[in-house]
Each structure stands twice: as C-alpha cells, then as structure tokens.
Amino acid sequence: MPTKVIKPVMSAEEAVKHIKPGSSVMIGGFNYGGIPYTLVEALVEAGTSDLTLIANDTAYDDVGHGKLVSRGQVKKVIASHVGLNKSTQRLFNEGKLELELVPQGSFVERIRAGGFGLGGVLTPTGVGTVYEEGKQVIEIEGRRYILELPLKADVALIRGYRADRYGNLVYFGTNRNFNPAMAAAADLVIAEVDAILEVGELDPNDVVTPGILVDILVLKGDSYYASRT
C-alpha cells in the first residue's frame, strides 16, 4: 500500500485485510498494556493463519494476541516471555509451534536494528549462558558480546494514544513500550489510537513516532481491554 501524506482511516476489519496468511506481524504491548486490541481482535476474527508473531510476550490465552496463538493462527513466535499463555507452552510442547526466545533488551534492539538500517547489535546480555549457543560472539576490548541480528516484519500493529491525519503519534502511560520501535521496522504499519486529530493539532514537540512511518489509522473499539488501556 503506497504511503500517502494524509493517512487513510479504516475500520479494524478493513485494515487487517492487508495481512496475508504467512505474514510476519509485529504487535506492540507488554503484558496486557499497550496492545492494539481492536486490530488484534479483528485479525483473530479474520482467521488469518500461518503467521509469524513478533511480540514481547504472548499475553494470556484469551487476551490480545494471546488469542492468535491459542486459536492456532501462529506458526512461529519470537518473544522474550511466554509464561502467561498456557497455549504457547502447550503448542510448543506438542511440536505445533516454533518458539524463539530472546532477552527483552536484545529483542527490542533487534527490532531497532531492523528499522534503523543496522546490520545487527552487539550486546553482553546472555553471554556465558545457554542463550549464547549457536550465536556469533565477538570480543571487543576484552569483553564478549553476542551479535544479535536485525528483525523486520511485513506488518506492525501498534497502539498509540493520539494521531493526527499525517499519522504522527503520541503515546500514553506504559502503553508506549515496544510500539515506537516496531513502527520503524515493518513494511506496513497500522496504528490503533484513541483519537485522530487534524494536522497541526499535535505539538511537534510531543510527537514520538513521525507520521512518515505510519500507513493506516484505526480508532480503538470498545472491548474490555481496548477501552481501558
């Protein structure tokens, strides 16, 4: 979808039609906070399958993108923590789900590298543990670092607070988490927000994600978590 200056505002149902089976999808959020619930629920409803889910965690069995996992729409998860979603554990143990666990700080740096044109990042996190196995370790000035490779996705579903029609975004509370990083790392970025303002109504000093990164705007719905987060 070509990026226009004025961003289209769509229903969540229309927006998720852009996600094809087999796509890699980044979804913002930490625990139950900062998840684009309305978009995720529409994706669950659409039944789009064979997805690679890139999210910090897999939420809960029946909350947010946890539902994508528990309903079998996901073939691979890349996350830092999946302990709160029993389906993730069960499907992984049954060999029905591929799981790549990444330390949380390395996870977000991989996304940043993907979005910002870096060939990877070097981090001391995980050195001397089983996590190091199979990864390239580089020594710099006597300290060992793991080379973490960039992560990109076909689509990012992110949660902002307010947008303007250019797609500029501001965030609220602890809902920010992974959303700004993911907004830079996907070919198609769909943002769910509380309100969509006219151009000029957001103070450029407050904008965190510039609108050039955002392709589609969706207003949040009124489900339990969408309306409360």
């Binding site: 999946v82 992984f92 330390p103 390395s106």
Partner: peptide
C-alpha cells in the same frame, strides 16, 4: 518454558 523476559539484561 516461560522465557527470560528482561532478567538476562
């Protein structure tokens, strides 16, 4: 397999 979350960092 809960995952390491932020603990390793």
């Amino acid at each position: 397999v809960p995952g390491m979350g932020g603990a390793m960092d």
